[in-house]
Nucleic acid binder design. Structure first.
Lengths: 196, 196
DNA sequence: GAGGCCGTAAACAGATCGGTTTACCCGGAT
DNA sequence: ATCCGGGTAAACCGATCTGTTTACGGCCTC
């Protein structure tokens, strides 16, 4: 193990821990002591890697965008099938995940909500995450072969974001069943045929 | 002016001020001193009316739910027209409002995001606000006369919530154009005829 | 086995938080 | 004129926040 890897490993460990704590407790409401509690990592080490809390938050959001958001569709892509089936399976998957673990919303959006007008660098991650998801929906719509994949992809992204926020606010996965219906309707209207 | 009204007036003044400050700055990030700054109201008076900050926040959310959310559809209802036109006009109206003033999202949802798992009474207002808007969409769908107004109303609410959150994260009203398209498609599929 | 080095634990500093208290002022009833 | 209740402004309190520093401990090299 090289020194670089060891440092990166510890840095990554901090980021993962902070990721969970911030996700569950919010950014402002969660102090750095809470992030480090029972971790065996000292504050000094944290501040060696991340000179400010905001810096840590940005690293967490980078981790979220590059790791979680980028791989959102990996499970349904792995299962294969045509693009439309993947879109619908995606909503089923998210519903199942929420049934297993309470919804926490989108971390990027939460960051944007807390830091809009206060820290532009952090707030920007909300837009980045949203656009990343949107582009993946657009790509799938292109594969489906609809007339205007950009428009449809953005519409589906709107439905997805609304579903995520409602699933969290309502505390259950029920919005996903209406969302799947709505997405199916939108895909139908775009001229695709529904498959069994 | 009765004593009750005077007290209520000052109490309402505090709530309105807190409403704006919390909306712009977030709940945890905005201190009570910030709420009172340049208001000519002392902290003592605030704590006479609201024994804790959380109590104030709940009053703000009550004000939001009873005032803002309940009247969301008042402008389009006042203009009249059939129910479908009102739904579509609603999205146009929201887009125009966001063009005039940056989107701030839904205060109830923000509260739920910040206080989920931390203060149930506050977090519950997110669900309340969401269900209130949903019920208004459902009512309009009933007026439209679709087969399953409850399902369609919930679908449209999902689209609306997603649009609100994206408009804030992206910083412009562009999501509303796709949202209006999506809603029109959903209404079309539900068997209504589009009017000019 | 001695000497650095990296890290933890914990004390510490300064600012800010929610919330309380004190001191003072002003308008209205007597 | 006087008293009194309700209000502001501001000092104050303990807790908590971000961030720094001190003290100590184990590991690696020589």
């Amino acid at each position: 193990m090289t020194n670089e890897e060891r440092v990166g490993g510890k840095k990554l460990d901090i980021v993962k821990r902070a990721y969970d704590r911030f996700y569950d407790g919010g950014f402002h409401a969660t102090g750095v002591d809470t992030v480090l509690a029972d971790s065996g990592i000292s504050k000094r080490t944290l501040y060696k890697h991340f000179p400010t809390k905001e810096n840590l938050i940005e690293a967490v959001l980078h981790h979220y965008a590059a790791g979680v958001v980028q791989n959102l569709f990996a499970p349904v892509r792995a299962k294969g099938g045509d693009a439309r089936a993947q879109i619908e399976a995606f909503f089923d998957l998210r519903a199942a995940m929420i049934d297993a673990q309470p919804a926490r919303g989108c971390l990027g959006i939460k960051a944007a909500q807390e830091y809009a007008g206060r820290h532009a660098g952090i707030a920007a991650w909300g837009e980045r995450a949203a656009r990343e998801v949107e582009s993946q929906f657009v790509r799938l719509c292109e594969e489906v072969g609809v007339a205007h994949p950009a428009d449809l992809g953005r519409q589906i992204n709107i439905v997805f974001q609304g579903t995520v926020v409602l699933a969290q606010a309502l505390g259950d996965s029920s919005p996903f069943v209406q969302a799947k219906q709505a997405v199916a309707t939108l895909l139908d209207a775009a001229g695709t045929s529904r498959q069994a």
